[in-house]
Amino acid sequence: MKFLTTNFVKCAIKTCDSSIDAFPLQYTECELVQQEQDYNPEFIVHMLERIQWDALISVARDLGNDGLPANKPEGLDAIIEDDQAILKDLHTLLLETHIVNGKMTCKHCNHVYHIKNSIPNFLLPPHLA
């Protein structure tokens, strides 16, 4: 599961939907693997529109990365050198960083979900589904 995906997944339990604590999940005991991917700055620029920045910072912190700017970078341009550096960093973090194994915990209900072999499992036991 790519780091980017953490920006789209939440607790699967219905009653957590109304809580702001159900997203993002908290990531612990994560085994990360870097996997090279073609660098496409245009994609990063477009993709940023879909990103919830605060959630990104929160998950990055869980995984030991405090280096993200506090506010979402706006109007990045792949031709400008300073922007290039930011885009490259985001590329490395969001697309090349994979969580291969780990735990995701809902900060509202404390339910723990597992990531195994890069596949996160959101299936719930019958009494919670």
Binding site: K2, T5, C11, M47, I119, P120, N121, A129
Partner: peptide
């Protein structure tokens, strides 16, 4: 750039 598969019922997660 990104293709992931997630185990879940419908889109619950």
């Amino acid at each position: 750039p990104t293709v992931d598969t997630l185990q879940m019922s419908l889109t619950s997660g």
